[in-house]
Amino acid sequence: MTAEIKKYTIGALVSNKSGVLTRISGLFARRGYNIESLSVCATEDEELSRMTIILKGEEYVLYQLIKQLDKLEDVIKIGCADELDCVYRELALIKVAASVDIRRQIVEATEIYKAKVVDLSTDTMILEITDAPEIIDAFVKVIKPFKILEMQRTGVTVLARGTHTLKDRDCYGDNVN
């Protein structure tokens, strides 16, 4: 009986204090959760930060992770985004080798993906793309043959559509969602 391994996106509101990231990443390490990405950012409330965690694992691990995180004093709210209709966005900056003869081709790909050229030097370009993570994956694949010099991705940010907010989400009790 092998359970299916999937990718899950988990959102958490945590207190904006020093040491919180250590507590959370320490918990992942000691319980052996396989985390693909973790991003932390400010929120509209200065006492809270928001974390977006991408977990790769079975459904059992998802629920364990949520319940274990929920026990931490600094975790205020937590929930799995995949159960809701959400907007996923990520930003990437890609520095690519761009000699005069291939610039046109790069710009073409950039336009198709609705990305932007944000810097140009004699031999390089920096491209910026903001989109759903899988679109960024596809864009990176297209750009790769031109030789990527370096690249940075912010990690996923996610918000549910409609009036639903994480801070109002009922994630305590028997039915952890």
Binding site: Y60, Y63, Q64, K67, Q68, D70, G173, D174, V176
Partner: peptide, 17 residues
């Protein structure tokens, strides 16, 4: 009382936190 203990090691048929 601990939600994280429910179904952690042995899967329950019914549970109450």
């Amino acid at each position: 009382i601990d939600n994280a203990e429910i179904d952690k090691n042995v899967t329950s048929s019914m549970h109450l936190m």
